[in-house]
Amino acid sequence: MSLIKTENVDKIYQDNGVPVEALKNINLEISEGEYMVIAGPSGSGKTTLLNLLGALDKPSSGKIFFENSDYSKLRRKELSSFRLHNLGFIFQAYNLIPVLTALENIEFSMMLLGIPEKVRKERAMKLMAELEIDELANKRPNEMSGGQQQRVAVARAIVNNPRIVLADEPTANLDSTTAKRLLDLMLKMNEQKNITFIFSSHDDKVIERAKRLIILRDGQIQNDKTN
C-alpha cells in the first residue's frame, strides 16, 4: 500500500486575474521509506507539488490520499493536526523560531503534541547528540551557522517520528561541504528510522543521493525513475 497517492492533481493559480496552471494531471504513488527528490527547472512546479503533498495547500482538482484517506478535503484544523502527527518540514531558509534556543526549537513540536517537558528534553537531547549538535542546545539561531541551523531544523522535523519529511531546497543556502554532511545525515535517518524523505531541489548533490527521482517540467511529470 502506498503512503501517499495523488490522482489527477491540478493546481491553477490566479496571477493578477490570469489563470496559471502550475501542475497538470499529477499521478504519483509514494511508498513508506522512500528517499525521493522532485527536481526540475525553476517554475516547473516543484515547490507547488511539495506544498500539496505537505498539506500546506489544496489542489484545484484531483485527490491526494494518505494511506487511502483523501486529505485534500480536510478542514484547516484537521490539516494542522494531520501535519503535526505525520509530517516534518525542512525549509530552505531553516526557519527556526529566532527567540527560542536550539533545544527549545526541537522541543517545540513535541510541546504541540502535549509531550511532558521531561520526556521532551530527554528526547531532544538524545537526538541532538545523534546529530552532533548537542553543544548548540542553548544557542539561539542567530548564534549558529547556516549548517548548524539546518541540522537543528532536521532535528525539529524528525523529533516527533513523522511518517514523511518534506524538504524544500534544504541545501540552497549551504556551502558544498556542509550540504553534503547534511544530506548524508538525512540519508542515514532515512535508512535507520525508515522515515520517508521528499525533497524539492535542483541541487546535484541532492539529486545524486536520490533513490527515486521525479523530473517536473511545465507542471507535468517528465520522468520518474528509481535508482
Binding site: G54, R83, F89, S109
Partner: peptide, 16 residues
C-alpha cells in the same frame, strides 16, 4: 508572517 507560517506548517493549531 513567515514565522507564523512556519508555526502553522509544523502543526501549531490556530487557537495556540
Amino acid at each position: 508572517i513567515q514565522e507564523i507560517g512556519v508555526l502553522m506548517s509544523i502543526g501549531m493549531k490556530n487557537i495556540k
